[in-house]
Design a protein around this nucleic acid. Structure first.
Lengths: 170, 170
DNA sequence: GCCATATTGTGAGTATACTGTCAATTAATT
DNA sequence: AATTAATTGACAGTATACTCACAATATGGC
């Protein structure tokens, strides 16, 4: 062993690290989504928010952030942009003056309906290079890993059922 | 009006989408890295840049961005922060007045050496919830997928070998 | 009823991650 | 050699994604 550097660092320290691979796949996933959905002027996060408001009409921002595992502060900006595009509206909650409830507009429901095929296409393209069996394996492992690591993230996912017990009716 | 019957949207449109899972894992990966490495004041991206400058002393910003698949504009800010922390230095290239070459400082080499165990710990924690065999499977599939989807990302990875032909010596 | 505590939305601040554009400089073409 | 191309680093702008902090409001303990 020739004695020169303290630690022989190679690029493998980057390329084989799971964190690096997750970052790359996130980059690729966003790029494919934007490419397929460019006609709709919606980002992946805005799409997720829109879906959730569609399935949970009248949800508030804090609960929305928990349902899609999204930071509350960041979500404020996302909501603002969706409101500017007139895809959603904010209405003050009658029983709690702090809360603003979120609803889809007709335009929001329409764009959500129309964008679906493009979203599906983008999602399919992400896994397309793999063999079908490998796609299933990867999705299964990823789903497990995200679930088992849920508490490790700064903004853990709190699914809909759990939310009902966290609210005012707890 | 093409659609009289709107598609019944469920949260599965979000939760089972590969793009959503990749975003969650990226969130989790960053959170674990920051947690394990908080003593070193380095982000995952800054770490990757530092490793690459260590293995490629005198690399310039454009080439660095290609080697870690990182946007050139974003990288400018990353480099600036690493310079402020005095982990790297920028030196003007003698043969090309546009180029600034990047080198580790002693403090940079030191922090890179010291942070390694914490980085390894963070990387291990990301996959820890899976069985060892599943970890290998996931890593293998992820590596394949990132490689096969390389051109889909906005900033494709251009590995070191390819770079030598893109440079001045082509 | 009152006070400590918690929640909600919001704001500032930092750090990716991308799109453009731009001037300075270098390389390629004629 | 002179015009054109391409490259480099920098800047502005947008959008996540997180931190901490704050005022307004609501809740629970007493």
């Amino acid at each position: 062993m020739p004695n020169s550097k303290p630690t022989p660092v190679t690029m493998d320290a980057v390329y084989t690290a799971p964190g690096y691979l997750f970052r790359r796949m996130q980059q690729i996933a966003v790029a494919l989504f934007i490419e397929e959905c460019k006609a709709f002027d919606l980002t992946p996060v805005q799409y997720a928010a829109l879906v959730t408001i569609s399935t949970h009409p009248g949800i508030d921002a804090t609960r929305l952030s928990a349902v899609i595992a999204f930071d509350r502060s960041t979500l404020g900006n996302v909501i603002e942009r969706l409101e500017t595009k007139e895809f959603i509206v904010r209405k003050p909650a009658p029983e709690d003056k702090r809360v603003k409830l979120l609803y889809l507009t007709k335009a929001g429901a329409s764009v959500l309906n129309d964008i679906m095929p493009s979203v599906d296409k983008a999602q399919a393209r992400m896994l397309q290079p793999l063999k079908p069996a490998d796609r299933k394996t990867l999705l299964s492992l990823l789903t497990q890993l995200v679930d088992l690591n849920n508490e490790a993230s700064r903004v853990p996912l709190r699914a809909e059922d759990a939310l009902e017990h966290l609210g005012r009716s707890g």
